[in-house]
Amino acid sequence: MAGDVKKIMFTVRKPPHGSIYVYEGLEVKLIMAAYDADISVVFLDDGVYAMKAGQDTSKLGIKGFEKTYGVLVDYEISKVFVDRQSMEERGLTEEDLLVIGEDEETEEPVRPKMIDSAEIAAMMAEQHNILCF
């Protein structure tokens, strides 16, 4: 029953590197996307850096996970947002955002959508669960 599908939101507030939270949080998203749940992801605060294109983790000695974020749409995670204020505070624009897949119909690249705090708050109010990473 469509009405029973639970809305689950992931918030990502931590920077992508320096701790494992964001990477392991990504693993949770990929698993939960396989279940019957309505998944959305919002990047806020330093979390917006996870959506920055062109991350080079080679000197950190870690594999990095930008490539995995690059195929979120393939995992049927297409409700992906970044907080406008967090982006602006960090001097980031929409042009800095990485591609998370391509549109099924138009084959155009899909990027996270920049939205305002009020829209995020409204979405949060509708969720059954919010998981923070």
Binding site: K6, E27, V28, M32, Y35, A37, H128, N129, L131
Partner: peptide, 11 residues
């Protein structure tokens, strides 16, 4: 066990 268990708990 796996993250599927967390998913079921969450749901």
């Amino acid at each position: 066990s796996g993250l599927g268990q967390l998913t079921m708990m969450a749901i």
